[in-house]
Design a protein around this nucleic acid. Sequence first.
DNA 1: ATCATATCGAGTAATAAATCTCGATTTTTG
DNA 2: CAAAAATCGAGATTTATTACTCGATATGAT
Lengths: 232, 232
Amino acid sequence: MADHRSVPEPTLRRLPCYIHVLKKVEQLGRQSVSTSDISRELKLDPTQVRKDLSYTGIVGKPRVGYPLKDLIEAIEHFLGWDECTHACLVGVGHLGKALLGYNRFGEYGVRIVAAFDVDEAVVGARISDHIVYHIDALPEIAQRFNIEMGILTTPASAARGASQNMVEAGIKAIWNFAPTALELGADIIVENAQLYATLAVLSRQMRGRVQAQPKPSPLRITPGAEQMGPEP
Amino acid sequence: MADHRSVPEPTLRRLPCYIHVLKKVEQLGRQSVSTSDISRELKLDPTQVRKDLSYTGIVGKPRVGYPLKDLIEAIEHFLGWDECTHACLVGVGHLGKALLGYNRFGEYGVRIVAAFDVDEAVVGARISDHIVYHIDALPEIAQRFNIEMGILTTPASAARGASQNMVEAGIKAIWNFAPTALELGADIIVENAQLYATLAVLSRQMRGRVQAQPKPSPLRITPGAEQMGPEP
DNA sequence: ATCATATCGAGTAATAAATCTCGATTTTTG
DNA sequence: CAAAAATCGAGATTTATTACTCGATATGAT
């Protein structure tokens, strides 16, 4: 199973897709799934799914598959999504408001406990049940609420400064939605939401298709679907 | 170079990062950049950057680098971001509103010309200068405005139906923000926005850190300030 | 009970991507 | 004007990831 430092990143990116599929299957009332089921849904190779799942430590039964409930739990535990991480959001613009309004981060182990901005027009406001504080209050509030993660949704021009503020407030992990490189110490974990990466692939395919299909198609892998539904 | 069907997807995903860096550098008034400059900013290998750039057809000069303006244009042209694609957005929830309010898609070759939903509460409204139509009007409006791309921001439960509507309206490319795999014909280009993929990587790193892999993400930029970004 | 079948899981092969090496070229420096 | 330094670009090497193969095993059908 699953030594921490040997999990391929592509695997990590696919795991959320599996969770989404599995939850859908769960709603159909089924008790188990096979990798064939999953791979059919996501158009992946079954053995790849099997290998990915093996990292979580789950064990399946030949001819049957995996116990559905256990499998979901195994993946969520593997990703740490069964535990709650306190997060703050910095940058209450359009995207920030959207994320504040998205009230299902709990499923992903994240709970936004505070929001920050510098704009007096939003500071003090209540956005989808979250109070917006001035960025100057970050250190105190981060400590008070034990905030471990920062969600960075400022414009690019403010991103570096805001990330600096986060680090000074003791935050160790940043989910960066700004299209900007952050310059931070090596002990800070930064992950880029990379919105435009997928647009680039799409754009490129639109003109002149990237990978032509005239081939024993190496099962084109667009690391499947996952992400958030914007709320009903 | 730049044979359509031989561009690695990782390369495509990195190209937008290069653009962001280059535009920053441009604002510093510089005329050229080297791959060393870029790789320093993005913490990538210089030869990898060089290989990526070579797909766009740009040619550099030893000891100098690439002409900045030409390079930006080459990448944007390569991605088709120098031409305007008409897009519609389906699903005017939190995320949909955020994307409608983000008025810089033009830089990425995309122009949202209409929005759709089924909810009477938003149909007919004007969101950030975009009129929201009922989904039933999609075929007519798609044709009238020559809409080629669909941005799918419905909840997961509505995603398949909405994608079906798009296809019936003649849309050939879908940027899918819903956490669902779409079941569409092979001629429809679908790209999943993958929000939770990055969260999975981040979560995993927070507990027990992944292999010491050079991650292509941690962006950071030198000086300056400026544009692009998820809007305040 | 026996057989056929679907599926797991481990191992191996093939493919794709990242990294390294090195000669060539341009600019700057002495 | 020659030498040094930086960087390009092609190709080779290494590493990572995906795809394939096959023996084992649980289930359902005959």
